[in-house]
Write a protein that binds this DNA or RNA. Structure first.
Length: 921
RNA sequence: GCGGAUGUGGCGAAAUGGUAGACGCGCCACUUUGAGGGGGUGGUGGGAGUUUUCCUGUGCGAGUUCGAGUCUCGCCAUCCGCACCA
């Protein structure tokens, strides 16, 4: 009987679906384990073999955990709002919901063929109103909350209103856009509109004017993580900076917690560092410089991490967008400044990046006074100072900052060195190292002493204070697009007002075309009657990350219409134990999700402070493209090895008609009409193709479809092979040619159970050699799966099966545990054999530890231990030799010995004359 | 520039500080058959030798150690992330 994977896989996939084998419910009697994949955006292209890599790994882990007795939550869903569906809708007029549903159906079909153990009863789709009701709900909660800095927690905004009414801003320490000071009397006399404006400055979801990334081609603003090197991540369109009023989330209020709480997570160091850099904490001080425009005096605050260098300040610099620019531009410089601002403003973000090292600037005409020296220094305006960081103004110390140095050199400003013996004739001295000089009371200190001393002095004299700054900005939360969650907000007398909770979900209206309106409003401006109680509703929609920020919570309780997640479900499933996904979400989704979770935690809706305890980043699978070489001006193709003898053009050829770099010539002739009568120059009777590693994409003809692999080899082979390729975390090219090896392994595995005539498993007693093989595998699998080292586990299986095959072992005592061990990796064949062994229930209900314990018996073999192939002695493990006895034995053979056998490991390390170490496990 | 990671055969890759290259692909030889991506056996880092075998070998250079692919330091190369963040 042959291994008929097609029949087997179909049979078990329908069995799992019919029996809801992987459906789970909260069960306090069993320990839970939550394994989550980053849910996909269902694109029109469908899945290629790279996409399921992480899903396969997490599925293996889920099935393994299930065998270990855990109640495993392993759900899947779709991140279904987003730009591509909408762009497609603009082109074709089809409703994005239609194409999205079609793509989802296709994804589901492909996923099902691979045999995942998802609990599909918990599926979520972010574009489903029943789902986005809770996205909108969270937004309303953020709208009606503020962040209390002293308590480090989100609080209801009503508490802030009460505080204002009682004491004004006195005693309030809240995260806000701009610092405000007013009395209770002033607050109580404010109009509704004024109060609303004040509160907007404190809300966690708020509307504010800020420099945004505007993408004209997409017609929308984008968040920082959606822009890379001046281009939109989606579509690659140029992006420019623009001041706009937008909805934002006060993520920055959580910067400190987002940073500190990274320490407790089991994420890779590189990913944690990426987030640390993105959040970017720096310790320093804010110092006030008096600035004078003619007779007018201003207090200008700057941020610095180098308070020790105040004595070396020779000029000040403002960001072009800074509010100080207007105040400090002297009449005689007005024209020059305006020209400079106009020039800076019209640059796209890309141009700014391209000209990064070009020094530009203009003198404002004003001067500032150094608070420590009393010296007068000019105030300049330059692009190299960013409006969004610190206070948008800096003190420049050209001797010890390379950017200030370049600026000083360009505009001939003085440079005062502050460190003994440093050379600033060619470049600045940026290192925090050396002895201070020219620095008044700091002279003689090392830099490391001088920094805290200077800050202390600044605080004592009241010219400034200690300050921690973060690079993390608030997230721009509105998009001028159609295919996203509508904001549950309407404008009553121009005041942004939340919709009552019982009016959620606010459903996306139908519109005729998905373009902006003639007046430049977002597409929702086209909707008929987009109002609430006669007032206009918000017309922008939420960004992609809105729906993906809390989906892991919704899986815990996906059908609940009264809460995002019930207390019971939340306190049972708590948080994700293992999260598998790509590293591309490091500074986007993984920050927003953590923020969102912390917010809900503050308000008491969830019980865990962090959403994803352990994170594994699977690598990308690249494509391996194949080429044929056409001799120019002919229809003749020359094999790769001979191509240098001709003048040829390299042409991508569909990798699916190439096997082991050998071209299927007939298939090639049929592939495209142009090649129907192609001629070939072969080597050794074959056409050998060239190859290259490139991104997997349609245009390179290197897309390998998992369906195709399932057709030819089966899902179990696909699963094993994806794991066998190498460590899950590593990026690697897909190369179909190695797949025969794992396919061969499965066929061989099958033949341990079946020969030509039928089932051959017997009940005979296993031999010591057979037990040894099994024990080796058990030991390996237990440690490797926990370490996510699946490629070595697959290898260990191959070794074990080869050994058993050689031993002609067909004993139940060995094969039954072997089937259990293999089942996480190759579930279909395992189920089939499990059934053949006489079990009526799914193998998923088998118990792994039971078998492991049952079979980790005292090994009774006698092993020969060899020393570099020369000396020999024996260790009889059936006698359970003590460490001392082994040591005595080894003393007579003073060389290096190492032996691994069965469930027991003896390793003796000896150097001439002495035993260094003995390990017996 | 800053931060992180990686570097081992023709290829994908293994190696708690202890016989480097397991396992698989590819390749070579033999074998079997109902040769369509068939099954089996053996070989396969490099160099030398008819055989036992010897020399050499994990990016480069030092160091720690009885012993280093593995640990430390310094280079070099590649990849990823951030990038005028004061």
């Amino acid at each position: 009987m042959d291994y008929d994977f097609k029949k087997i896989e179909k049979k078990w996939q329908s069995y799992w679906a019919a029996h809801e084998t992987f459906k789970v419910a909260e069960d306090p009697s069993r320990p839970k384990f939550y394994v989550l994949d980053m849910f996909p955006y269902p694109s029109g292209a469908g899945l290629h073999v790279g996409h399921p890599l992480g899903y396969i790994a997490s599925d293996i882990y889920s099935r393994y955990k299930r065998l270990c007795g855990f109640n495993v939550l392993h759900p899947m869903g779709y991140d279904a709002f987003g730009l591509p569906a909408e762009q497609y809708a603009i082109q074709t007029g089809q409703h994005p919901a239609v194409t999205t549903m079609k793509n989802i159906a296709r994804y589901r079909e492909q996923l099902d063929r691979i045999g995942f153990s998802f609990d599909w009863s918990r599926e979520v789709r972010t574009c489903d109103p029943a789902y986005y009701k809770w996205t909108q709900w969270a937004f309303l909660k953020m709208f009606s909350s503020y962040y209390d800095n002293s308590r480090q927690s989100a609080r209801p905004i009503s508490e802030l209103v009460d505080a204002f009414a009682a004491n004004g801003t006195a005693g309030v320490d809240a995260a806000c856009g701009e610092e405000m000071t007013f009395t209770a009397a002033r607050w109580n006399s404010m109009s509704e509109k004024e109060k609303s404006d004040v509160l907007m400055n404190y809300r966690i979801a708020y509307q504010g004017t800020t420099a945004v990334n505007w993408c004209p081609a997409l017609g929308t603003v984008l968040a920082n993580d959606e822009v890379k090197e001046g281009y939109s991540v989606r579509g690659g369109h140029p992006v420019e900076q623009k001041m706009m009023k937008q909805w934002q989330l006060r993520v920055s209020a959580y910067a400190g917690r987002l940073l500190d709480d990274l320490d407790g997570l089991e994420w890779t160091d590189s990913l944690k560092d990426m987030q640390r850099n993105w959040i970017g904490r720096s310790y320093g001080a804010e110092i006030v410089f008096k600035a004078y425009n003619g007779n007018k005096e201003y207090d200008m605050t700057i941020f610095t991490t180098r308070a020790d260098t105040v004595f070396g300040v020779t000029f000040m610099v403002l960001a072009p967008e800074s509010e100080w620019v207007e105040k400090l531009t002297a009449p005689e410089q007005k024209k020059a400044v305006e020209e400079y601002l106009a020039m800076a403003r019209k640059k796209t973000e890309r141009e700014r990046i391209a000209e990064t090292r070009k020094v530009t600037g203009v003198f404002s005409g004003s001067y500032a006074v150094n608070p420590l020296t009393g010296g007068k220094v000019p105030v300049w305006i330059s692009e190299y100072v960013l409006a969004g960081y610190g206070t948008g103004a800096i003190m420049a110390v050209p001797a010890h900052d390379s950017r200030d140095y370049a600026f000083a050199r360009t505009f001939n400003l003085p440079i005062i060195p502050l460190i003994e013996g440093c050379d600033v004739s060619e470049s600045s001295f940026d290192a925090k190292d050396g002895i201070m000089c020219n620095s008044g009371f700091l002279n003689g200190m090392t830099v490391k002493e001088a920094i805290p001393a200077a800050i202390e002095y600044v605080e004592k004299t009241g010219i400034g204070h200690r300050k921690v700054n973060y690079r993390l900005r608030d997230a721009i939360f509105s998009r001028q697009r159609y295919w996203g969650e509508p904001f549950p907000v309407y404008y009553k007398d121009g005041i942004a007002t939340p919709l009552p909770e019982d009016r959620l979900p606010l459903k996306l209206p139908e519109i005729s075309t998905y373009l902006p309106t003639e007046t430049g409003e977002p597409p929702l401006g086209r909707a008929e009657d987009w109002t609430y109680e006669g007032w206009p509703l918000e017309k922008s929609t939420m960004p992609g990350f809105a729906g993906s920020s809390a989906y892991y919570l919704r899986y815990m309780d996906p059908h609940n219409d009264d809460a995002l997640v019930s207390k019971e479900a939340d306190s049972y499933w708590r948080s994700v134990d293992l999260y598998v996904g790509g590293t591309e979400h490091a500074t986007g989704h993984l920050i927003y999700s953590r923020f969102w979770n912390k917010f809900l935690y503050d308000l008491g809706y969830v019980c865990e402070n962090e959403p994803f305890r352990k994170l594994v980043n699977q690598g990308m699978i690249q494509g391996r493209s194949n080429f044929v070489y056409r001799i120019v001006n002919t229809n003749t193709f020359v094999s790769c090895g001979l191509k240098d003898q001709y003048e040829t053009t390299e042409i991508h050829v569909d990798v699916n008609i190439v096997h082991n770099d050998r071209l299927d010539i007939d298939a090639f002739r049929k592939w495209m009409p142009d090649f129907a009568d192609a001629e070939f120059i072969l080597e050794d009777g074959e056409y050998i193709c060239g190859y290259a590693i490139e991104k997997m994409s349609k245009s390179m003809f290197n897309v390998v479809n998992p369906d195709m692999i399932c057709d030819t080899y089966g899902a179990d082979t696909l699963r094993l092979y994806e794991m066998f390729l190498g460590p899950v975390e590593q990026s690697k090219p897909w190369d179909t040619k190695g797949i025969d090896g794992v396919n061969r392994f499965l066929k061989r595995f099958w033949r341990l159970f079946y020969d030509r005539d039928g089932f051959i498993v017997t009940d005979g007693k296993a031999s010591p050699a057979e037990l040894k093989t099994l024990h080796k595998l058990i030991g390996k699998e237990k440690t490797d799966i926990e370490n996510f080292s699946f490629n070595t586990t697959v290898s260990a299986f191959m070794i074990a099966v080869n050994e058993l095959y050689e031993l002609k072992c067909n004993k139940r005592e060995i094969l039954e545990p072997l089937v259990i061990l293999l089942s996480p990796f190759a579930p279909h064949i395992s189920e089939e054999l499990w059934e053949a062994l006489g079990h009526s229930e799914s193998i998923s209900y088998a118990s792994f530890p039971e078998y492991v314990e049952a079979y980790t018996v005292e090994d009774s073999c006698t092993y020969a231990v060899s020393f570099n192939g020369k000396t020999r002695f024996t260790v009889d493990l059936s006698k359970s030799m003590s460490k001392d006895e082994v040591e005595a034995e080894v003393r007579q053979n003073p060389l290096t010995a190492k032996y691994v056998g069965g469930a027991s490991i003896v390793k003796v390390i000896v150097v001439p004359g002495k035993i260094v170490n003995i390990v017996i496990k």
